[in-house]
């Protein structure tokens, strides 16, 4: 990992809530093509860190650079416009539209075509949308309303939407939350495949340790707002400090989910 200009560079970000330090001087980078897991026990500051990167929170100190550009404090919409795709812990799609329309919408937005008042949206970016659905294994469900999809399929649809507009960075908040074990592996394998093929940088948070250690290139570990480990997953897994935080600090087990 020695890309000259990282896709995402976080430097010294800090955030406090009413005197409580949720995040304290956290720095890390992600290079293109890299799958980086952000882990840590509950209350470690994962969500805060993630939400600062995606623009939902403004840090008290520190900077966030995406593709060399300072995006600290920009709203999520602007960050999306810079080529950052997102998925949510509870998959968010547009339930009143068909799967195809969902992806078309994402494509239209990525191309800044939202303020089109005349041509039917139905005919815009149809082929690309279908292709994205094919790639995420949703081709057969294109015409179904999103509200009628199984949850696993909603997650895939969300991934397809996040990939619309050729993002350089993908931010995934617990991409496998709420899925059965088999589905999880499939999902993360899909993410892995697609991002590899596109040379995409991915930052994801995850509770499931087998997902992290099975698929991520690298992991960073947060505990009480501080970064305590950053390295290849095998090294992180063996890190005594990490083991203590996970095994000593909270409940034992590979699943740190409460």
């Amino acid at each position: 990992m020695s890309a000259p200009s990282p896709v995402l560079a976080v430097r010294g970000i800090a955030k406090s809530y009413g005197g409580v330090r949720a995040l304290d001087g956290v720095s890390f980078e992600i290079a293109a093509g890299e799958l980086l897991a952000l882990i840590g026990p509950n209350g470690a500051g994962k969500s805060t860190c993630f939400n600062i990167v995606n623009g939902q929170l403004r840090p008290d100190a520190g900077t966030v650079h995406i593709l060399g550009r300072d995006v600290t404090g920009l709203p999520p919409r602007r960050i999306a416009g810079l080529g950052v795709g997102r998925t949510f812990q509870v998959a968010a799609v547009f339930p009143s539209m068909t799967a195809l329309e969902n992806v078309q919408m994402a494509l239209i937005a990525a191309r800044r075509g939202v303020f089109g008042f005349w041509h039917p949206a139905r005919r815009i970016a149809r082929e690309e949308a279908l292709a994205l659905l094919e790639q995420t294994g949703m081709g057969a469900q294109a015409e179904r309303p999103a509200a009628a999809l199984a949850y696993g399929d909603v997650k895939r649809l969300e991934l397809a939407m996040a990939l619309a507009g050729e993002p350089k960075l993908l931010l995934m908040d617990e991409p496998t939350a709420g899925m059965a074990a088999g589905e999880r592996r499939e999902m993360i394998a899909l993410v892995r495949r697609l991002t590899r093929a596109r040379g995409l940088a991915v930052l994801f948070t995850e509770h499931s340790m087998d997902v992290v250690f099975g698929h991520a290139d690298r992991a960073i570990v947060l505990a009480r707002g501080r970064l305590i480990a950053d390295g290849p997953v095998d090294a992180v897994r063996r890190d005594p400090l990490v083991r203590e935080v996970y095994l000593g600090g909270t409940r034992p087990g590979r699943e740190a989910r409460p």
């Binding site: 999306a80 547009f94 339930p95 994402a106 949206a121 996040a162």
Partner: peptide, 19 residues
């Protein structure tokens, strides 16, 4: 479509870059 998107999920819409 964007209007409906904002209604369905403001979170998703913003994340997709819809103002």
């Amino acid at each position: 479509l964007a209007l409906r998107a904002g209604r369905d999920s403001r979170l998703r819409a913003e994340a997709s870059g819809i103002p």
